[in-house]
Amino acid sequence: MQVQGMGVTTRAEPLFGSLEFAPRRPNWTAFLPYLLALPIVVYEAVFIVYPIFLGLRSSFYQQPLGGAERWVGFANYGRMLGDAGFWAVMRTTLVYMLAVVVVAVGFGLFAALVLNRQFRGRTFARGLMTVPWAFPDVPTVLIFLWMLNPNFGVMNVFAGFLPWIEQNPTWLLDQRLAFFSVVLVTAWKGFPFYSLVILAALQSVPADLVEAARVDGASPRQAFFAVTLPVISPTLLLLTVLASIYSFKQFTIIWLLTGGGPVGATETIAIRIYNTAFRFYDFSYAGVLGVAGFILALSVALIFLAIQRRQEREVS
């Protein structure tokens, strides 16, 4: 019997005299999963991996507009590491991510706990809560720009209730207020999604466990921390990572509200990359910043994976 294929040729004597087995037909069904995965692999290779590769490559070159590119090795990385502006942007990015995670997930948890209780109009309230999430970013920001206008914005009215506020705050011109405003709008836009996911998780908490804790004398607060929170913590962890990624790649809200200002107070890495590439036309340096951003995003994802595996090990 001669078997050919995959570059291997073997010869064997027939086992039963002249009786010769027919060659085995390849099992095509074994290839089916690969075949089905092929389109997405090709798509990712062309539209994700290749651009990442090009970005990485460009970080090692200097290319004047319309001119020939020139290999510069790690010079762009050296420039980045010595650039005080870069470190300021990284710090702003991390603080912004943290603030958005805390506010959005925290408020999402609070809203979910409220909406998990029985009250009249609960269905309507749940529907209403999804509105911010359903709104497109641009009109949302435009409305907030009007609300935050120092001359006639409605937020001035609310600020006026505070006893120490004498003049209308310049919401988007003052560094601290601008950062606060950007975090607020980002969290407002994102929290309904987190809230809905937490709500779903809350409904998977066994009611008898909570009931048993209450019977044993636990207060609602104790029951929440001892029973509910441990059950929904994997969901909260996942949402923390999602919120981190959501805030990390946030561009539209920040760009339209403050453009990264004032004085860089809201300039995250996404804004800096855009400015460097498409306003200052320094594509090579933008490539390096992109690599830094990629590493940061990857780090967040890896930390999440590590924590998840640890939790899985603990459960098993």
Partner: peptide, 20 residues
């Protein structure tokens, strides 16, 4: 040739003057 980058640096500092 670097007008926007120049401008960004200037307006950042001018904004500091205006708001702080």
């Amino acid at each position: 040739f670097n007008n926007q980058e120049f401008g960004q640096i200037v307006i950042n500092r001018v904004t500091e003057v205006l708001t702080t």
